[in-house]
Amino acid sequence: MKGNILIIEDEDKIARLLEMELTYEGYTVACASTGREGLNKALSGGFDVILLDIMLPVLSGLEVLRRLRETDKQTSVILLTARGATPDKVSGLDLGANDYMTKPFEIEEVFARIRSCLRNRMTNAAPMKENTELVLEDLTIDPVTREVERGGIQIVLTQKEFELLLYLVQNRNQVLNREQIIQAVWGHDFVGETNVVDVYIRYVRKKMDYPFDRQLIHTYRGVGYCIKESEK
């Protein structure tokens, strides 16, 4: 089998279509029709990817995601959103969703997003060498524990905020355009607006830059972003 997928969707036609197509593709599929049922199944573990509708009875999809991420940071979550629901998309990504799809969607797009999540999961699961801690001036990042400190103060980041900051630090002193950042952080199969990068740069700056005397993240208008060490 290719992987274990949990579908949390209250629209029966959509849930049945996804279950049928994913099963045909070789995935093992489980379904839930309410937020409460979906959360209980998700917390039981064993899933590689969760397809999570935002508009659910009993518990909303965003509440399911919030509670899931309290104990599970690893399982990939793809949100299913209504057209034009931009605030929900941003909130979901900020809570730790890996991706989102806007209804109605093509089944091939579903397959592509799932493949992307599974690839990223395999990459993140690869064993890391010891002493992988990254230091840039007073900023310290531990890719293994995903802990971030600046000036001895712990910085709490969401999953995507952490991955964005890690990518910038790994490519320090290089100006990175939005397309490069999207491919590295959101994956090659990401389908969405490039301004998601600007939104997340703003989130990271608010937590990691603005409270301190010197800003590390620099904007190159019309080009992209760079995290820079001060010149010696």
Score class of each variant (00 low, 15 high):
residue 224 G to P: 00
residue 228 K to P: 00
residue 66 R to N: 00
residue 164 L to E: 04
residue 137 E to D: 12
residue 69 R to F: 11
residue 109 E to S: 00
residue 206 K to D: 12
residue 125 A to Q: 14
residue 84 G to H: 06
residue 175 V to W: 05
residue 26 G to F: 07
residue 103 K to R: 03
residue 179 E to P: 00
residue 171 N to F: 01
residue 159 Q to V: 10
residue 219 T to N: 15
residue 16 R to V: 04
residue 64 V to K: 03
residue 147 E to W: 01
residue 197 V to K: 07
residue 43 L to H: 11
residue 77 V to N: 14
residue 40 N to R: 15
residue 180 Q to T: 14
residue 198 D to W: 00
residue 179 E to G: 03
residue 91 S to K: 15
residue 180 Q to Y: 04
residue 10 D to E: 14
residue 150 R to H: 00
residue 69 R to L: 11
residue 23 T to M: 10
residue 115 R to G: 02
residue 136 L to V: 02
residue 148 V to Q: 00
residue 90 V to S: 04
residue 153 I to D: 05
residue 60 S to M: 05
residue 53 D to W: 00
residue 133 E to A: 12
residue 133 E to W: 03
residue 18 L to T: 00
residue 160 K to F: 09
residue 216 L to D: 03
residue 162 F to P: 10
residue 127 P to Q: 08
residue 217 I to G: 04
residue 83 R to H: 09
residue 207 K to D: 06
residue 27 Y to S: 03
residue 182 I to L: 11
residue 176 L to G: 08
residue 14 I to A: 13
residue 177 N to D: 14
residue 74 Q to P: 07
residue 193 E to W: 06
residue 89 K to D: 15
residue 134 L to Q: 15
residue 214 R to F: 12
residue 87 P to K: 04
residue 31 C to H: 10
residue 124 N to I: 07
residue 148 V to G: 06
residue 91 S to F: 01
residue 3 G to K: 02
residue 32 A to N: 08
residue 143 P to Q: 06
residue 101 M to A: 04
residue 149 E to Y: 15
residue 27 Y to E: 06
residue 139 L to E: 01
residue 114 I to A: 03
residue 180 Q to D: 14
residue 144 V to P: 01
residue 149 E to S: 15
residue 30 A to T: 08
residue 96 G to W: 02
residue 95 L to R: 05
residue 166 L to Y: 10
residue 43 L to S: 11
residue 7 I to D: 00
residue 217 I to V: 10
residue 56 L to F: 08
residue 162 F to L: 07
residue 7 I to S: 08
residue 79 L to Q: 11
residue 177 N to Y: 11
residue 121 R to Y: 10
residue 44 S to R: 13
residue 100 Y to R: 01
residue 75 T to L: 03
residue 5 I to F: 04
residue 135 V to N: 03
residue 165 L to A: 05
residue 212 F to L: 04
residue 107 I to F: 01
residue 117 C to F: 06
residue 15 A to S: 12
residue 144 V to R: 07
residue 76 S to C: 12
residue 198 D to E: 09
residue 196 V to H: 05
residue 219 T to C: 04
residue 179 E to I: 05
residue 172 R to L: 09
residue 186 W to K: 06
residue 98 N to K: 02
residue 36 R to H: 09
residue 231 E to S: 15
residue 132 T to M: 13
residue 146 R to N: 02
residue 121 R to T: 14
residue 152 G to E: 08
residue 91 S to E: 10
residue 165 L to Y: 04
residue 218 H to A: 11
residue 197 V to F: 06
residue 59 L to Q: 09
residue 139 L to P: 10
residue 221 R to T: 10
residue 147 E to A: 13
